[in-house]
Amino acid sequence: MKMSNSEKTANIVIYLIMFVMVLVVLYPMWYILIASFSGAAEVSAGNVILKVHDFNMGAYKRVFAMNGIAKAYFNTIFYTVFGTLLSISLTILGGYALSKSRLYGRRGLLLFITFTMWFNAGMMPTYLTYQTLNLVNTRMGILLCGAVSTFYVIIMRTCFEAIPDSMEESAKLDGANDFQILCSVYLPLAKPTIMTLVLYYMVSRWNGYFWSMILLKDDNLIPLQVVLKKLIVTMSGLYDNGSTNADTTQTSAETVVYATIVIAAAPMLLVYPFIQRFFAKGIMVGAVKG
């Protein structure tokens, strides 16, 4: 079939807009990346636009020489790994039990959890709750904070509900109890959804900032995002006052910030292409029914 002229123009317009969109998404990241490897003098002169000028690793050396970066990195990994484990365990337990229509009190429990999607007590009462439970400035507090997303529980429940009851019945005849059925029948079948939720939880753990900033006072406990934020504030304070523009020709406050940004964002962006297919699997569709 031959394309008409208007078809052709439509195609060109679409590709053009998409190209601009891709550019707008990529360029800021690209700029930060090349600037972090470039000489500070070149960066502030505005020469670094498309590629690295005066290549050097000075900014990275300074970041890693800084106190606390390694510790912050460790903390972020700790919170991400154990936090995600906690989150997904609670989500599976709740989602599974609530997927059984025979369960007494299910309607009430569902209302009990969905209500929290509609109404939130707000920042202060939540903070005071953490204080009452002695969770302020503890690792446990960060692990528990935001551990369960009601929305994901509902997705999990919808997924379990879609698995036919006959699977459960035949396992029951073999003498399996509910816990064994969950582990050996339901978990393997729900694996795609569970993987997707694990990834969602993981990303929000890795990138989480607000409550870590509020709940943690001890520098030994803070994750990377909080360190990065502190760094940006102090550094931008430095160069916006015009006091120190470039410490040397090779590194400056801002190239150090760029390097820290790269270090903080890189792990998620590097694993992302490999996990992308899980995200695209139309997982939300299930939630809409819930």
């Binding site: 969109m21 891709v22 998404v25 990529l26 800021p28 990241m29 930060i32 990303v203 890795w206 990138n207 989480g208 900032y209 995002q225 909080v226 990065l228 934020k229 940006i232 910030v257 820290t260 940004i261 903080a264 964002a265 998620m268 962006l269 992302y272 992308q276 995200f279």
Partner: peptide, 15 residues
């Protein structure tokens, strides 16, 4: 275009 979703708000604001 999915990529920026994996960048934290702190990083985005820093940029």
């Amino acid at each position: 275009i999915y990529m920026p979703h994996f960048v934290s708000t702190v990083v985005a604001a820093g940029m």
